[in-house]
Simulated scan of single mutants.
Amino acid sequence: MLALPTHYIAGLNVLVRSFAAGVDPVELEGGPFTAARFVDAARRLGIPERLVALVPAQLATLLDDRNALTELRRFQAVLVGGQATPATLAAQAADAGVRLVRSYGSSETSGGCVYDGRPVGGATVRVEDGEVWLGGPSLAEGYLGDPGLTAERFVMHGGARWFRTADGGSLRDGMLTVTGRRDDVLISGGVKVALAEIERVLREQPGLQDAVVVAAPDPRWGETPVAFTAGYADTQAAIAAVGAELGAAARPARLVHLDALPELPSGKPDRRALAELARG
């Protein structure tokens, strides 16, 4: 099933996989992603070997819809990526009988090349000074018209070519754990705070699986985290949970409830739009 835009690498890969498998992909019809359109497309698949790639926000939408969940359980695998999948969302999917496969990669690696923490195909992984590096035959040649950035991000090491992802992570017994963007850090009162870690804690709280955290200027602390959600939760309890696990500097100054989070065409949260709201 094609549930992602084809001008993004994850959607393009659905077409490539379909071509390799010798089948025609079934596309969602009628506009933006909804549970009802997913159900309609699933019923048009007509084959037992069902595969679909989703982003976490799409997965959450389907898990909350009874008819969509019934169809989702019939898929051989549900590949989820594009951003970190909250542990609570993954657990909810597993409890519901959904066969989830977590994907990690980027456009520079021709899409997901690490599944459930393990490299697939000819992909290779290493972690250097806390940064995830990816290697293998699927790497891009570089950035068009930008030799400086190409030289910075694509490097030779140990006789092999690697892509420096700028993601933080660890590698233990061949299993990769990604902790978030190394450059996605604010400094509040002189203390470095990783926005991805705040999101992780918030998304583990009831009703906050969609939480997104951005940095906002603060006259006293320099920067401070601001969280957004379209869900409903005990705001004070959620903020207190962040402080208890990550320290006072990580506590969101605000937890803002919106009718809907702004999204990019890929289905990912529009962090730039949210940052503008946080500054407003």
Results as ranks from 00 to 15, higher is better:
M1Q: 06
S18M: 03
A21R: 15
G22M: 11
E27W: 13
E27K: 05
P32M: 11
T34Q: 07
T34K: 11
R37G: 09
R37F: 07
R37E: 04
F38R: 09
D40F: 01
A42G: 09
R43S: 12
R43N: 14
P48L: 09
E49T: 13
R50M: 11
L51P: 07
L51I: 13
L51K: 13
A53F: 08
L54A: 12
P56R: 04
Q58T: 08
N67I: 01
L69D: 08
F75S: 13
F75G: 04
Q76S: 15
Q76R: 15
Q76F: 09
V78P: 03
V78R: 00
L79T: 01
V80Q: 05
G82H: 03
A84F: 05
L89P: 11
A93I: 05
A94T: 13
A96I: 02
G97D: 07
G105E: 06
S107G: 14
V114W: 02
R118S: 09
P119Q: 06
V120Q: 05
V120Y: 02
G121L: 11
G122Q: 08
G122F: 00
G122N: 07
T124D: 11
G135R: 00
P137Q: 01
S138I: 00
E141K: 13
D146Q: 15
F154S: 10
F154R: 08
F163G: 02
R164V: 10
A166H: 11
S170F: 01
S170Y: 09
L171C: 05
L176T: 03
T177K: 07
T179W: 02
T179E: 04
R181P: 05
D184A: 14
V185R: 10
I187P: 04
I187A: 15
I187N: 15
G189W: 02
G190R: 12
V191Y: 02
K192F: 03
V193W: 02
L195D: 06
R200M: 07
L202E: 10
E204T: 12
E204S: 14
A211V: 11
P219L: 04
P225C: 04
A227E: 03
G231R: 09
A233M: 13
D234N: 15
E245C: 02
R251D: 06
L255V: 13
V256Q: 10
H257C: 12
A260C: 10
A260Y: 09
A260T: 15
L264F: 02
S266E: 07
K268F: 01
R272K: 15
A275T: 14
R279K: 14
R279Q: 14
